[in-house]
Design a protein around this nucleic acid. Structure first.
Lengths: 205, 205
DNA sequence: GCCTATAGTGAACCCCATTCACATCACCGC
DNA sequence: GCGGTGATGTGAATGGGGTTCACTATAGGC
């Protein structure tokens, strides 16, 4: 990954990876183009051969993040196997697992102020991930009688909101301020109660 | 609010208000000390007579935000009157209303990277707001038989996560990317389904 | 072995955060 | 009123980051 001669060979991706480490370590505000360039063994100006600027580099991190995220969600959903409910639960856990495993990507995607419709590629990745969640929700809801079936897009939004909220408030906060509940348990129990409210899980427990 | 003579008279608060406007307009990253100073009619160096630096100014915005937020939540809760469920719903709506009405404060509190335990005053405001939400949840849950009553702190965390998630994903995003649902409706319906899952609202609709 | 497109450098510019010596003013005791 | 003193604001300087631009080094085709 270090530069060999005058040319780097793979500077673009090296910059992305340096940026991801820095974003993860110092937050989106603390990240600097210059520091990323230094880590890649290159002057700041060289960055502009590969990216339009600082924002564009962050956007590329987010783009790769959305791509990974969509893959992860598709893998968790697994076409609904072995059962819709189990696969749905897997996508929920995958959401949190992604945030834990790819914190730099997660921050670039959701905390950097980069709008998902900043570029078509970004929007495409975000849309693919959302499509998986929507599909998982649709299949899950299909077991309900039509009269008691709320719109899938609404339910998907509820689930996504709670997942995102748990990550932001309880998984990415300073340890100790998170309260007595582990984020994974919090999300699992919250979605469980919600699914009972929908009539997908039986009452009581 | 403009400077009269050599001395401003109320520079500290004028800076806070300028900062809030800028944070609201440009996000926490786009906000600059210099611009806030210029708006208050003062050189950047003058800011340091009132704040330790840029971060400290943002933290003061957050502090005032937490104070307002706690007041708003207490007012909405209103001691549980006229009924626990109605008062609980009012606090949920108040959460969203606060984010809409005080966007600068909201961003300073939740999107600026300022840790709530950065200072005792910040932590105190945050704790007061959380106490209201916890109290509202406790009273709401007290109608449930003990066997079917989950811990109030867990339920409060669920509600807070969904509220925060709805705000971040659907209320503060670019218009059009929010999907077909108004954030207020989304939160109302989501909490409604959740409360049905708890057995606080009757099944069906 | 030249020639050219590609990739990186160095210096420059501007903006911002921060510091410090200095200037100005409000208020206090007399 | 009057001078002194502490609080408040200024101007200049430092250092760092983002961005641009002219220039340079290199790789790879001919």
């Amino acid at each position: 990954m270090a530069k060999q001669g005058y040319h780097h060979g793979n500077l673009r991706q090296a910059l992305v990876e340096a940026a991801l480490e820095l974003i993860q370590a110092q937050g989106p505000g603390g990240f600097t183009l210059s520091e990323a360039a230094k880590r890649a063994g290159v002057t700041p100006a060289a960055v502009y051969r590969h990216f339009a600027g600082r924002e564009d580099l962050i956007a590329e991190c987010a783009r790769q993040g959305y791509a990974i995220f969509a893959d992860v969600m598709e893998h968790a959903w697994n076409g609904g196997a072995p059962a819709p409910l189990a696969a749905f639960g897997a996508t929920g856990r995958a959401y949190l697992a992604f945030a834990r495993r790819f914190p730099g990507h997660y921050v670039a995607m959701f905390e950097s102020g980069i709008a998902p419709n900043r570029s078509p590629e970004l929007a495409a990745g975000a849309a693919r991930a959302e499509a998986v969640m929507l599909r998982a929700t649709e299949v899950l809801l299909s077991s309900l009688p039509a009269a008691r079936r709320p719109p899938a897009s609404m339910v998907a939004a509820h689930v996504r909101a709670m997942s995102h909220g748990v990550v932001e408030l309880f998984a990415r906060a300073a340890p100790g301020s998170a309260g007595p509940w582990a984020p994974e348990d919090l999300l699992e129990s919250g979605i469980g109660i919600y699914l009972r409210g929908l009539g997908i899980l039986p009452p009581d427990n």
